[in-house]
Design a protein around this nucleic acid. Structure first.
Lengths: 236, 236
DNA sequence: CGCCTGGTTGAGCAACGTCAAGAACTGTGG
DNA sequence: CCACAGTTCTTGACGTTGCTCAACCAGGCG
């Protein structure tokens, strides 16, 4: 099978970095890449380890975790399908990367990938744009972590997840209530927002009591009143 | 005067992005650049504004501020001499950029700068590396903002400033106490660390009482016991 | 059925924010 | 040199938010 055929069935062929390559370039990249399945809970990369790989995320969700010496944790980023994984040009990984769901990666040896990057300005260009966007997002989240109340954090987070679910979620009428599954446990939501699991739970219950959302068991959630949620996402 | 001569007296000629260019390329870049002095307190760019410029910071310190609708603020980044200012490829600025000290910039129209970037892969490459580093730093700070105590934040911040002062600061013996001036007011420190001005002040007083630092009036500070400070920077 | 993981709820508490007053420093003009 | 205003900094009293600790509930699975 030719490399370009391998990539032809790639779910994120056009969304991922590779979208910037033509078929011929793709062959070159593909020759150093390798698919890898990662089960839920498995760690792809440990903070402090030598940085040996980069990857494209084909499916699933990964978390990027920073932690203190005494074990406190903070999720500093979530990676979804077509996102780029790893840090080129860094000797050591700064964060631990773990799969929150079963996931599939297209893995490259870091140094080989860097060489490809250097030969293909267009791909490096796309990576730069992605990195700039990630940086802006991280900085935006700094505001949330440092200055927003638990209620604002939860409301904002739910809106985020809702817009991400958007297409895959299910709603009765085009502008009516939206139902979808949260891809994270309460504990993971707490790790994203810089809260504790109890606070997350209480805020969710509060939103439910207020009729803003409902929680039909398990991971499911229905956004009943998006306006109310948006209001709470920026209440003082 | 030739462009390369203009740049020849640039204090950050080799540290800044331009360091990746040869003399000829520098002429091209310089033809679109322009020096600009910015007094302390002046705002270089407002969040939400159309993103019209990029720049290299020649001297001084800038702050990058995110704020909520109701006026709460968070400094999401500090920029020092030779740092790159602005976001290429973005239509709108996401953060407000303000001078904390008198500063000097080498300013480029954003779109012209983007064209230069596209023609000079080496420069784009350097910018990518910088952006990746900034991203890692921002993520690291997310951990601090969300999970560290006020004491840990202050201790870590002072160590940061100490290492940055390093050369310019003054110490009696090579490993003895280090004295330098903080470039930020208490209020600005609070904005960086996600605290209030009062909490910053109290923590500083506490460190002084413990004999870890001394505060010889004004902005001055002496790190008396760096080990003790490092310990407090990662205490539970 | 018991076990395990994840979620909810409650009571108490500590850290940090808020409000308020006053001290110290900076710069300006007399 | 001093008086003055304006800012920044410190300190205190008090309140609130969200964390800690602990118990209990619900669903999935051997």
């Amino acid at each position: 099978m030719l490399a370009k055929d391998i990539c032809a069935d790639c779910a994120v062929r056009d969304q991922a970095l590779c979208g910037s390559l033509d078929d011929q370039e793709l062959v070159a990249l593909n020759s150093i890449g390798q698919r890898r399945r990662v089960p839920r809970g498995a760690t792809v990369m440990w903070a402090g380890d030598e940085s040996v790989i980069c990857a494209n995320l084909l499916s699933g969700v990964l978390k990027l975790v920073a932690s203190t010496a005494d074990g406190r944790e903070q999720i500093v980023g979530l990676l979804y399908a077509s996102d780029f994984v790893g840090t080129p040009f860094a000797d050591h990984a700064d964060f631990t990367i773990t799969a929150l769901t079963d996931a599939e990666l297209c893995v490259f040896p870091r140094q080989a990938f860097e060489r490809v990057l250097e030969d293909h300005a267009r791909m490096e260009h796309v990576l730069l744009q992605r990195t700039l966007r990630a940086l802006n997002e991280a900085r935006g989240r700094m505001l949330t972590l440092a200055r927003k109340s638990a209620e604002e954090k939860i409301a904002g987070f739910l809106l985020d997840m809702a817009s991400r679910a958007g297409s895959t979620g299910c709603r009765a009428t085009p502008d009516g209530p939206l139902t979808f599954d949260l891809p994270l446990t309460r504990g993971q939501i707490a790790d994203v927002l810089g809260l504790t699991i109890e606070t997350v739970s209480r805020q969710m219950t509060k939103l439910k009591s207020a009729g803003v959302i409902s929680l039909p068991g398990g991971r499911g959630i229905t956004i009943a009143d998006q306006n109310a949620l948006e209001l709470r996402a920026q209440a003082a």
